[in-house]
């Protein structure tokens, strides 16, 4: 483990750490408890335990809303998109971090502008584009959109981080006869693992929970993703919260697993030695 300065948290920070643990575990218990209730109980006695365990919330989420299918779809889309995204970002950001030329600065700014605009502004021109490309009900299209829309944030995070990676590493690699590409993959990528894990988790979260692209570009039930699945119990006026909470519990599990897996990598990925200068 690194970051010696924190090994001893001190009394204040320890108390805070435990306090925040309580503060964040509470919503989990709230969600689980609510997943066994009906609307009247959720709203009129939100803090108490369910009077009867309404298991049917889960069976309805599984059978009526086909939540497992939706989870599998979202997982598939997220895994492929994040893998492609991180690969493309790694080579792109390396250049942006190292290249001193004007064009690289311009490209960086162009990327930056991408996450500053609310997505609603882009929907109409984007839909025309997707429609012209025949991209409805097409996972390839969705993956490309997910990669494109998560690119700005990932490029921003990774480029910033790579700037702090010592240039001596690249130069040593070049002397050893590595090309640009090999240098990135074999030398820079490993030492940048923490930020890749972070960017990966963030992108995964956004893609897994995406609502707007799924709504605009999917209409085949078999292709539906988690967010559409979650709305299966939102009626025109009456919303059934019990089965929605059951669906939330089920669909959160894979995300937590993925997060823990990535987050482990953050700390394992750091090899001993002077890697940053």
């Amino acid at each position: 483990m690194k970051a010696t300065s924190f090994r001893n948290l001190g009394v204040g920070l320890t108390v805070f750490a435990v306090f925040w643990l309580f503060v964040t575990l509470y919503p989990l218990s709230f969600t689980i408890v609510s997943s066994f209730k009906d609307n009247t109980e959720i709203f009129s006695s939100p803090m108490s335990l369910p009077s009867v365990l309404r298991i049917e919330n889960y069976t309805r989420a599984l059978l009526q809303a086909t939540i497992l299918r939706n989870i599998a779809n979202s997982l598939f889309l997220s895994v492929i998109s994040v893998a492609l995204l991180l690969f493309l970002v790694s080579i792109c950001s390396y250049v942006l971090a190292r290249e001193k030329a004007k064009w690289a600065v311009v490209v960086y700014l162009v990327f930056l502008s991408g996450f500053l605009l609310p997505v609603h502004s882009a929907l109409i021109p984007l839909t025309k584009l997707v429609s012209a490309l025949g991209g409805y009900n097409n996972y390839a299209m969705l993956i490309i959109l997910f990669v494109s829309y998560n690119a700005p944030l990932s490029v921003f995070l990774v480029t910033g981080y790579m700037k702090t990676v010592s240039k001596e590493l690249d130069e040593a690699a070049f002397l050893d006869g590595c090309g640009y590409f090999q240098t990135v993959i074999y030398v820079i990528l490993p030492v940048s693992a923490p930020i890749f894990a972070t960017a990966g988790i963030v992108a995964f979260l956004f893609i897994y929970n995406d609502l707007i692209f799924s709504i605009l570009f999917l209409s085949k039930k078999t292709l539906y993703t988690v967010s559409i699945g979650l709305s299966a119990f939102v009626g025109e006026r009456i919303v059934e919260y019990g089965p929605i909470f059951a669906s939330i519990v089920l669909s959160s599990l894979p995300m937590v697993a993925i997060y823990l897996l990535f987050q482990e990598k953050v700390q394992k990925g750091i090899t001993e030695g002077a890697i940053k200068g």
Partner: peptide, 25 residues
């Protein structure tokens, strides 16, 4: 939703609403 629940839990005596309320639990 809370309004509907108050009716369901017997905390409010009346509740004005449309036909859709007929299907509320």
């Amino acid at each position: 939703a809370a309004d509907n629940a108050l009716f369901g839990s017997g905390e409010t005596a009346m509740h004005f609403d449309g036909s859709w309320f007929l299907s509320d639990g």
